[in-house]
Design a protein around this nucleic acid. Structure first.
Lengths: 139, 139
DNA sequence: TTTATAAATGCAACAATGTTGCAAAAATAT
DNA sequence: ATATTTTTGCAACATTGTTGCATTTATAAA
């Protein structure tokens, strides 16, 4: 994990700082699970909220993480597994949000739609959210 | 509009208060456009944020309005045009969110997906968000 | 119409999330 | 080893949302 984190920072030409290393390791550990700022905060030893927010923005700008829109109101991020870039986040996969524990995970699958967008509207991104109860909470 | 608002309050057995009347009129006027708490606040003459939040919750509970999930982080509501109830919000229509002006509107259309949800996960609701630029902002 | 009662309001107080400016510290380049 | 560029950490602030409680208001009952 540590090595992978360092690799990524190097790859994206980002300075190797304690915060970035730790946050990146947490995302690598989380896999397909999305993490909120407060999730990360409680997992970090030394926490400065502001630096954390900036770290997340930096990672997002570089296409390392993407926002996992789940309708919960809190911003969550997950590792980009596909090919994301600064200008194009290819996170067109669906997200599942558990209403009970608040957990959000990235899923796979394709979405088809026949939505008619009004004249003059330009669609740039699509988000598909499945909401319900996860396996941990459904028992 | 005024009459329609009063009708609705009567229909749902909700007390006829100034706040409720005004908020309902704003939603009726907005049609398929979703409104945030702050949108409403600036449109109201006399504003108490807390009462407004409670009014929105009440309307939502009664199936008069539904949350329009748009990934913007702010909670927005739009009139239920279909048949929503306290326990079942049938707002399975997509929402369009304009990244430039922040506007959100309800659209129509069906969504098909082949998403494989992990074992034990129960899907209760689905949300489909189209994000981009609206006609007002695309000029 | 007046009174009783049930519900809604408005206030204080608080919590969570997020942003900006700026000086100090740290990471890289020279 | 030093210079330069970034990043950090702090204060200060803004927005969004919630809860408890006394007061006021809307409706139901007498």
């Amino acid at each position: 994990m540590q090595e992978k984190a360092l690799e990524l920072l190097k790859l994206y030409r980002l300075r190797n700082t304690a915060m970035r290393r730790q946050v990146l390791e947490l995302f690598l550990k989380a896999g397909h699970k999305a993490l909120s700022s407060s999730n990360l905060e409680s997992a970090l030893e030394k926490t400065d909220r502001i630096t954390l927010y900036r770290t997340l923005k930096t990672f997002e700008r570089n296409g390392i993480i993407h926002q996992a829109i789940d309708g919960s109101g809190v911003t969550k991020y997950a590792l980009c597994h596909g090919q994301c870039s600064e200008h194009d986040h290819m996170d067109d996969h669906p997200h599942f949000h558990c209403k009970d524990c608040g957990k959000t995970i990235c899923l796979e699958g394709k979405i088809q739609n026949n939505v008619k967008v009004p004249k003059g509207f330009i669609v740039q991104q699509k988000h598909f959210i499945l909401e319900g109860t996860c396996s941990d909470c459904s028992n």
